[in-house]
Nucleic acid binder design. Structure first.
Lengths: 183, 183
DNA sequence: AAGTTTGTTAAAAATTTATTTAACTTTTTA
DNA sequence: TAAAAAGTTAAATAAATTTTTAACAAACTT
């Protein structure tokens, strides 16, 4: 390989590494481990990879790659592919950021909605019982009512978030905010 | 205090704790420490709090409260208030989840857009240089072009995310997804 | 201005999380 | 079906983060 070819290869690798570094750095804000973040960013520039290729490329242990790839599959940023001829499993990175966005945030928000709404509903029932309890003093009734109302108000937000998730899942949000705008 | 009053008070506390637990649990997915998550959730049911009240209520150290409250101020989930008569600082929790949502995700997404777009722009320049380099072999030019195109495609997503942030900041998104829907 | 209270910074301890090594299970193929 | 290869689970180690204790700085009171 000639000197200039080698120099070009190096430049390409350096350019990729800039993007890999940026993606990996922002990704651990998404609740994945550094290993998983690095792995995804690396796979972003690859067609497909096996566990052994991942281990070699990142210089990490195989179980670490196995765990990372599973976590990435959970948030659908990596998918398993069938490659005939090879008995090793092969994986590909989701390269469409729109899809990653949709899956990740919908998952996150649905979890939040479910968990918080359940607690809110239960708590509201409790407050109603206190309000209906004939032995409750006026002060206590007033307090319970105030908390009940605060929770009722918060439900508006969770309903809105539900709508947001639905519009992302259905793709309706792209009618409001087109994927390709002309500025 | 009568038995039944005491029982009602306990029920109110239990009801609040359900919500506090749920909020705290979902919040540490938002990148805050357990102490900060618990603190915010606790403050959600309080008018205002001083550092000493926080320490007493959560049974944690003062520096921990100080750090947590600062972190919560950064993401604008807590604000400092002036209470004349008291020389202690007092803080209030943002109780409008819409506002917390806007500040948190806009901050998060703007950081992601900035960091990744900068890397993408730099990398694209590098790829262009390789492509323009007269000593580059056809294979190398093809490879550089492919990566360049992949990054160009990714910019559509970042532009879309910019639009999403803008529509959240301006409130325009609520024309598309109203805060109070009637189902 | 001295003393006291409040809040912050810095170093240390404790806890949690991430990664690795080693053992084990499953799958493949010969 | 036995041997080998691939992948996963579990325990142990390592690393990073969170929290606390202790020392310090700033602000208020008298």
């Amino acid at each position: 390989m000639s000197d200039s070819t080698e120099r070009s290869r190096t430049k390409i690798e350096e350019a990729k590494d800039k993007v890999i570094g940026a993606i990996a750095e922002t990704m651990d804000l998404y609740g994945v481990t550094p290993a998983a973040a690095n792995l995804y960013a690396t796979m972003y520039f690859k067609d497909q990879m096996t566990l052994d290729e991942m281990r070699t490329e990142l210089g990490m242990s195989k179980p670490s790659m196995s765990t990372s790839v599973r976590k990435l599959q959970e948030i659908e940023m990596v998918k398993k592919t069938f490659t005939r001829g090879s008995r090793k499993h092969t994986y590909v990175a989701e390269k469409n950021f729109f899809r990653s966005f949709m899956v990740f945030y919908c998952q996150m928000w649905e979890r939040e909605i479910k968990m918080n709404m359940e607690a809110v509903e239960e708590a509201q029932e409790d407050f109603i019982n206190v309000i209906k309890d004939s032995t409750s003093t006026p002060e206590i009734v007033a307090e319970a009512k105030q908390y009940y109302d605060q929770l009722e108000e918060s439900k508006k937000y969770y309903h809105w978030l539900e709508d947001l998730v639905a519009s992302i899942k259905s793709g309706k949000i792209f009618e409001f905010l087109p994927k390709d705008q002309q500025d």
